[in-house]
Design a protein around this nucleic acid. Structure first.
Lengths: 220, 220
DNA sequence: AAAATGTATCATAAGTGTATCATATTTAAG
DNA sequence: CTTAAATATGATACACTTATGATACATTTT
């Protein structure tokens, strides 16, 4: 899931933003700069929505810190405050919003920034299995499962093609790069290993004489 | 954390300043010029608050020394002493305060100078390891660890990409600049050296056939 | 000369694929 | 409609290959 930290001292605005984001993101609110700093040190956020005018540590100071953390920032400032906009962007913010803003604009900006940072679809999920793409980590029931590179690639391919019957040739080509697979049983073997490691005996179905399909309920 | 050295012979003023700064900075008091010199040689300070009129080695003499150390200085002098103000600024001080001054003014000046020097949060941390970016110093358990340039760069890259699996190629490109790494084992070797020097055997994980990942708990 | 960096070598570990046999599915003959 | 042959896939073991760690040493830089 994508984590968004909302740094905003005005509760009504903070809540409004939070409600708007809750459907698609995990959110956390920080009421001032100090709280924000604490949150950032504790957890990793994928994006920070930062009001500039906040108590204790102001938004700009916070951004100085965030530069090193490599966390994308969208900052929020008053409409006419051109100076602050320039300053914010120079400090490394990725985008900005001027108050008052509407929700759809906010959502659009967020999507755009996340896409720029490759954060979208960084995480793939099925039931209790989670793939963290940039970490190359797979967890099942919150426990890391050690997969080899080929296994990982294969799992990713399956997750990205839910309910699609994949030909052995296709799989081989996509993962082994080679565009022709002779009589090897390599693909089968790796499928077996995956099924075993992740308890996907039911989900990874064999399509006789064709290949395999990662079958997922309620998703066709 | 940001280290501030307070050089002031009058205990009441020194303590007042210290108390005002304690919330946001790490502070140390030196009662005269000699003590100050000793402190500066022992530890790295991000800023020095320097009273001009101090015993043993006076403030101006100290500043001559500090010029080479590249440590920002705010000096403190009597209200009307225009001559000294000019002299101090010429000697390379970054700002000055005239006695008596109020605390909020002091804080503002400090912030401003630190910002000018990019000192605000040029510090990256993981557990007991601290990277001071602009001084290129790494400390573990408050003891300076001597790292070579490549090692330092590599550590920084890892710290800036927590939990991300970094391809050897990427690492090589980002640190050696070359955009193609042949069959060298350079990256591996430096990783090993880092692991050893900083006891990061667990944290710096090898991602088989990919590269390495700096894995940090509670953060995915 | 000393420090930093990179290459070479060997040892070990991890990943991958082949071979083999067992079981399941399809096909086609009776 | 049965059933045997043909073929496909699952399971297991193991051999082979490749990647990485460790160490020593050569080269380059300071």
């Amino acid at each position: 899931m994508i984590n968004v930290l909302i740094v905003e001292d005005e509760p009504s605005i903070a809540n409004l933003i939070q409600m708007s984001l809750n459907e698609n993101y995990l959110t956390k609110i920080a009421n001032d700069g100090e709280e924000a700093l604490k949150e950032i040190k504790q957890a990793t956020f994928d994006l920070i929505l930062l009001d500039i005018m906040i108590p204790k540590i102001n938004g700009f100071e916070l951004m100085e810190y965030l530069k090193d953390e490599m966390i994308p920032v969208i900052f929020i400032t008053a409409m006419s405050d051109t100076q602050n906009i320039v300053k914010g962007l120079k400090l490394g913010a990725d985008d900005y919003l001027t108050k008052p803003f509407n929700i759809s604009e906010l959502l659009a900006r967020i999507e755009s920034v996340l896409r720029r940072y490759n954060k979208i679809n960084n995480v793939l999920t099925y039931k209790d299995i989670v793939i963290y793409k940039d970490s190359h980590i797979v967890k099942k029931n919150n426990k890391t499962i050690s997969l080899t590179k080929k296994e990982y690639d294969l799992l990713l391919l399956l997750f990205q093609n839910k309910n699609v019957a994949l030909y052995r040739d296709t799989i081989y080509e996509r993962i082994w790069g080679d565009n022709f697979m002779g009589e090897t049983r390599t693909v089968d073997l790796h499928i077996q290993r995956l099924r075993k490691k992740l308890n996907l005996e039911k989900e990874i179905q064999t399509v006789y004489k064709i290949g395999y399909r990662f079958e997922v309920e309620n998703e066709i």
